[in-house]
């Protein structure tokens, strides 16, 4: 199975452990990826400060046009901001002829056009619906043996359409965790926002959001938190020290990408493939104990 992979800016930087682990974990399942050549940023969460809505639509339409020109495959966007921007713009162009004309008039400035034939998918959608928990389970050679994981979905990765999972009570990540033989603990705050793209400028407010999310995971017995979003991963992991200072808590819980857990359970290399050494709060201890 082949897809375009639109990994976006974060996965080359703060979310590098997502991209590093995503490739071998998906390859083990027979998924092939092709890069969208010369892709640009999706605009993410805060572009609206400097840009009007049409400009942000055009950013995404350009990427869609580049993929469509080569044709053939769905686009997989693992970063939740890339995903939500791209799937939203894609739907809007597909459903609104006036907008499609307007966007194409702008794309023509750069010699591009977009007909609206491409489908945008989240990586969890592909793993759950195209591969399925059963085939994932078959690849597991190092089961996670009941490791208690809080599957943090965050806000953007199942929105704004809920195409492959419930937007209020998502279960797909939990089912994928269970396929690796982990225990998905109850986690009521799994869709509560962490502050996302404005965490840095609004840290005073956002630390509290993350404190509540981490607290919920810990209260429900999680040994680590799994996520599929580079903003979630960074905000939940990097600021635990700041939260402990501010709220006199003692969080020290590893935050890993679902794809890192897959690489571990598939028996791949813990550093080269699972990128566990990229994590600031080391997950090796708890993972090695689980796989025995």
């Amino acid at each position: 199975m082949k897809y375009y992979l639109y990994w976006g800016c974060s996965l080359e930087g703060s979310g590098s452990n997502f991209l590093v682990s995503l490739k071998p974990a998906c390859e083990a399942l027979g998924i092939e990826f092709e890069e969208i050549v010369d892709w640009n940023c999706c605009g993410a969460s805060v572009s609206y400060v400097g840009a009007n809505d049409l400009s942000i639509k055009v950013l995404n339409a350009r990427n869609l046009a580049l993929a469509e020109a080569k044709g053939g495959y769905d686009i997989v966007a693992p970063c939740s901001s890339c995903y939500i921007q791209m799937i939203k713009v894609n739907h809007e162009i597909q459903e609104d002829e006036g907008l499609a004309r307007q966007v194409n008039e702008v794309l023509a400035e750069g010699g591009l056009s977009y007909k609206g034939t491409i489908k945008v998918r989240h990586i969890m959608d592909v793993l759950y619906n195209d591969i399925g928990p059963k085939r994932i389970r078959e690849k597991v050679t190092k089961p996670l043996n009941g490791l208690r994981v809080a599957g943090y979905v965050g806000c953007q990765s199942v929105r704004p359409y809920g195409e492959y999972d419930s937007m209020e009570r998502p279960v797909v990540q939990d089912r994928l965790l269970e396929a690796l033989d982990a225990e998905a603990v109850p986690f009521p705050k799994k869709i509560k926002c962490c502050g996302s793209g404005i965490f840095l400028p609004e840290m005073g407010y956002c630390l509290e959001l993350v404190k509540d999310i981490l607290g919920d995971a810990v209260v429900h017995g999680a040994q680590l938190v799994s996520t599929v979003c580079p903003m979630c991963a960074m905000n939940l992991e990097m600021y635990q020290g700041r939260i402990n200072q501010k709220y006199e808590t003692d969080f020290n819980i590893p935050i890993v990408y679902l794809t890192q857990l897959m690489a571990v359970a598939f028996g791949l290399d813990l550093k080269r493939d699972a990128a566990l050494n990229y994590n600031i709060i080391p997950p090796e201890g708890v993972l090695k104990a689980a796989i025995g």
């Binding site: 640009n40 840009a51 009007n52 809505d53 400009s55 350009r62 702008v106 400035e109 750069g110 591009l112």
Partner: peptide, 19 residues
């Protein structure tokens, strides 16, 4: 690579769109 053409598009979108 396509930065110049991207900028042309964004300039046009800034004029054409609302905001």
């Amino acid at each position: 690579k396509g930065i110049n053409s991207l900028r042309k598009m964004l300039d046009k979108a800034a004029k054409m769109g609302k905001g």
